[in-house]
Protein backbone atom coordinates (compact mmCIF):
# COMPACT_ATOMS: atom_id res chain seq x y z
CA UNK A 1 0.00 0.00 0.00
CA UNK A 2 1.82 3.05 -1.16
CA UNK A 3 1.36 6.59 -0.03
CA UNK A 4 -0.92 8.70 -2.21
CA UNK A 5 -2.36 5.59 -3.84
CA UNK A 6 -5.83 6.58 -5.06
CA UNK A 7 -8.60 4.37 -3.73
CA UNK A 8 -11.79 5.96 -5.05
CA UNK A 9 -13.59 9.24 -5.69
CA UNK A 10 -15.01 11.34 -2.90
CA UNK A 11 -18.49 10.87 -4.31
CA UNK A 12 -18.16 7.10 -3.91
CA UNK A 13 -18.32 7.79 -0.18
CA UNK A 14 -21.56 8.10 1.69
CA UNK A 15 -21.94 10.84 4.22
CA UNK A 16 -22.08 9.62 7.81
CA UNK A 17 -21.76 6.05 6.69
CA UNK A 18 -19.25 3.56 5.31
CA UNK A 19 -18.24 1.82 2.07
CA UNK A 20 -15.86 -1.08 1.40
CA UNK A 21 -12.83 -0.91 -0.87
CA UNK A 22 -10.34 -3.52 -2.01
CA UNK A 23 -6.75 -2.30 -1.67
CA UNK A 24 -3.96 -4.69 -2.61
CA UNK A 25 -6.05 -7.69 -1.75
CA UNK A 26 -7.15 -6.25 1.59
CA UNK A 27 -10.71 -5.24 2.34
CA UNK A 28 -10.90 -1.87 4.05
CA UNK A 29 -13.91 -0.01 5.40
CA UNK A 30 -13.89 3.73 4.75
CA UNK A 31 -16.12 6.06 6.73
CA UNK A 32 -16.94 9.64 5.85
CA UNK A 33 -18.00 11.87 8.73
CA UNK A 34 -17.87 15.41 7.34
CA UNK A 35 -18.69 17.09 10.66
CA UNK A 36 -15.69 15.61 12.49
CA UNK A 37 -12.23 17.09 12.48
CA UNK A 38 -10.64 14.18 10.63
CA UNK A 39 -13.58 13.70 8.27
CA UNK A 40 -12.39 10.36 6.90
CA UNK A 41 -11.47 7.12 8.67
CA UNK A 42 -10.46 3.65 7.52
CA UNK A 43 -10.28 0.34 9.35
CA UNK A 44 -10.27 -3.28 8.25
CA UNK A 45 -13.60 -4.50 6.90
CA UNK A 46 -13.19 -7.80 8.79
CA UNK A 47 -15.24 -8.20 11.96
CA UNK A 48 -13.10 -10.44 14.19
CA UNK A 49 -16.07 -11.33 16.36
CA UNK A 50 -18.75 -11.87 13.72
CA UNK A 51 -16.11 -13.34 11.39
CA UNK A 52 -17.31 -11.68 8.21
CA UNK A 53 -16.27 -8.74 6.04
CA UNK A 54 -18.98 -6.31 7.01
CA UNK A 55 -17.73 -3.48 9.26
CA UNK A 56 -18.27 -0.96 6.43
CA UNK A 57 -21.98 -1.63 6.75
CA UNK A 58 -22.28 -0.64 10.42
CA UNK A 59 -23.75 2.52 11.89
CA UNK A 60 -21.22 5.22 12.82
CA UNK A 61 -21.48 7.58 15.74
CA UNK A 62 -19.81 8.52 19.00
CA UNK A 63 -19.73 6.50 22.16
CA UNK A 64 -18.36 8.00 25.39
CA UNK A 65 -16.23 10.47 23.44
CA UNK A 66 -14.86 8.01 20.87
CA UNK A 67 -15.82 7.92 17.22
CA UNK A 68 -16.97 4.39 16.51
CA UNK A 69 -18.69 2.04 14.12
CA UNK A 70 -21.05 -0.54 15.55
CA UNK A 71 -20.80 -3.97 13.92
CA UNK A 72 -23.94 -4.76 11.97
CA UNK A 73 -23.72 -8.38 13.10
CA UNK A 74 -23.43 -8.33 16.89
CA UNK A 75 -23.21 -4.58 17.64
CA UNK A 76 -19.75 -4.34 19.23
CA UNK A 77 -18.18 -0.89 18.90
CA UNK A 78 -14.86 -0.42 17.07
CA UNK A 79 -12.94 2.83 17.63
CA UNK A 80 -12.35 4.33 14.20
CA UNK A 81 -9.08 5.98 15.27
CA UNK A 82 -7.41 3.19 17.22
CA UNK A 83 -9.21 0.12 15.83
CA UNK A 84 -9.86 -1.10 19.39
CA UNK A 85 -13.01 -3.01 20.14
CA UNK A 86 -14.62 -1.34 23.15
CA UNK A 87 -16.27 -4.52 24.36
CA UNK A 88 -13.40 -6.94 23.84
CA UNK A 89 -9.80 -5.81 24.16
CA UNK A 90 -8.62 -9.00 22.47
CA UNK A 91 -10.41 -8.15 19.22
CA UNK A 92 -8.84 -5.00 17.74
CA UNK A 93 -8.92 -4.35 14.00
CA UNK A 94 -6.26 -2.83 11.79
CA UNK A 95 -6.51 0.88 11.00
CA UNK A 96 -5.38 2.62 7.83
CA UNK A 97 -4.51 6.25 7.26
CA UNK A 98 -6.47 7.75 4.45
CA UNK A 99 -7.19 11.32 3.45
CA UNK A 100 -9.08 13.41 0.94
CA UNK A 101 -7.07 15.10 -1.79
CA UNK A 102 -8.74 16.93 -4.67
CA UNK A 103 -11.95 14.97 -4.31
CA UNK A 104 -10.05 11.68 -4.30
CA UNK A 105 -9.63 9.30 -1.40
CA UNK A 106 -5.95 8.43 -1.06
CA UNK A 107 -3.72 6.39 1.24
CA UNK A 108 -1.94 8.82 3.53
Amino acid sequence: MSINQIICDKNDLIENSGVAAMVDGEQIAIFYLPTTEKKIFAISNWDPIGKANILSRGIVGDYEGKIVVSSPLYKQHFDLESGLCLEDEKAPVRTYSVSLKNDKVVMA
Binding site: I14, N16, R57, I59
Partner: peptide
Protein backbone atom coordinates in the same frame (compact mmCIF):
# COMPACT_ATOMS: atom_id res chain seq x y z
CA UNK B 1 -29.52 10.83 1.32
CA UNK B 2 -30.21 12.23 4.75
CA UNK B 3 -31.70 8.98 6.08
CA UNK B 4 -29.44 6.32 4.64
CA UNK B 5 -26.70 6.55 7.27
CA UNK B 6 -29.23 6.19 10.06
CA UNK B 7 -30.57 2.81 9.14
CA UNK B 8 -29.70 -0.51 10.65
CA UNK B 9 -27.79 -2.60 8.15
CA UNK B 10 -30.90 -4.53 7.19
CA UNK B 11 -32.81 -1.39 6.29
CA UNK B 12 -29.79 0.09 4.51
CA UNK B 13 -29.67 -2.80 2.09
CA UNK B 14 -33.38 -3.62 2.20
CA UNK B 15 -32.47 -7.18 3.09
CA UNK B 16 -31.51 -9.22 6.16
CA UNK B 17 -27.80 -9.73 6.75
CA UNK B 18 -26.82 -13.33 7.40
CA UNK B 19 -23.92 -14.61 9.47
CA UNK B 20 -21.47 -14.56 6.56
CA UNK B 21 -22.39 -11.08 5.33
Amino acid sequence: DNHVGLQDTNDTFLANMQKDG
